[in-house]
Amino acid sequence: MTTAHITSSSGPSTLADALVGRRSLATDAGLVAGGAGVVALFAQISVPLWPVPVTGQTLAVLLVGAALGARRGALALLTYAVAGLAGLPVFASFTGGPAAIFKPSFGFIVGFVFAAALVGWLSERKWDRHPGLAFLGFLGASIVPFVFGLPYMAFVLAHLGMAHDLDTIVAAGVTPFLLGGAIKWLIAAASLPLIWRASGRA
């Protein structure tokens, strides 16, 4: 009588798993907290604009989501949002507090959770290890915050009695971010395949 042993040759599903090794609840919690901390740090790389500041958050969201995977990446960004709403100064310009939910920019923070989940899901399927797929995946994830952020911005501006027509929303919530967003997308999409290659685990 023989026993079949099923083994997996697919290797680690995320960069974090490749670098950290054995997974545990404590390890996952540490990675989630660390991911939230990275986003908080990058949020302070900020050019204050109204109604949405230009920050380094999107780059951090893409890197954290890709490195941690869908579930942990989304949890890291959810942890970041909750910490900010609880009053920790993790949002841009060291701000925080429940009043942030009434800012026109808060919809982008909501979108970050889903962006991290998307790029993490793609990375679990090895998109982040191949330059072509990485560029496509990170581009898609870069768009996700705008899907949430722009309608939220229009809603808040409307309730503030301010202009919220399509031209205004595009001028305030899209145009200022095109160049910086493209740079952050390219950095994230180019760096992950290189890191995988350097790790020898791709």
Rank of each mutant, 00 (worst) to 15 (best):
T2P: 11
H5L: 14
I6V: 12
I6R: 10
S10H: 09
P12V: 05
S13N: 08
A16Q: 12
A16G: 13
A16N: 14
L19P: 02
V20W: 07
V20I: 14
G21C: 09
R22H: 13
R23T: 12
T27I: 15
T27R: 15
A29M: 12
A29F: 10
G30H: 02
A33R: 00
A33I: 13
G34T: 06
V38L: 14
L41G: 05
A43Y: 00
A43S: 13
Q44H: 02
V47S: 12
P48I: 11
W50H: 11
V52P: 02
P53K: 06
P53H: 04
V54W: 00
G56F: 08
Q57T: 04
T58P: 00
L62N: 00
L63T: 09
V64C: 05
V64H: 02
G65R: 06
A67S: 15
L68G: 02
L68N: 02
G69I: 04
A70V: 06
A70E: 05
A70C: 10
A70R: 10
A76E: 01
A86R: 06
A86Y: 04
A86K: 06
L88H: 03
P89Q: 05
F94V: 04
G96D: 03
G97E: 03
G97T: 07
F102E: 13
K103M: 12
F106E: 00
F106G: 03
F108T: 07
V113R: 02
V113E: 03
V113H: 02
A115W: 01
A116W: 02
L118S: 07
L118V: 07
V119K: 07
G120P: 00
L122A: 04
R125A: 13
D128S: 07
H130T: 15
P131E: 08
P131R: 12
G132W: 08
A134H: 01
A134Q: 00
A134V: 12
A134N: 03
A134W: 01
F135K: 10
L136Y: 07
G137T: 05
L139H: 08
A141V: 08
A141S: 11
A141L: 07
S142A: 14
I143G: 01
G149A: 02
Y152L: 05
M153S: 03
A154G: 14
A158D: 13
L160N: 14
G161F: 06
M162D: 14
A163V: 09
A163M: 08
H164S: 15
D167A: 15
A171Y: 04
G173T: 07
G173Q: 03
T175L: 14
T175P: 05
T175A: 13
F177W: 02
L179H: 05
G180K: 10
A182Y: 08
A182G: 15
A182K: 05
I187W: 03
A190L: 14
S191F: 14
S191R: 10
I195H: 03
R197L: 11
A198W: 15
A198N: 10
A198M: 15
A198I: 12
G200L: 10
G200D: 04
G200V: 08
A202D: 14
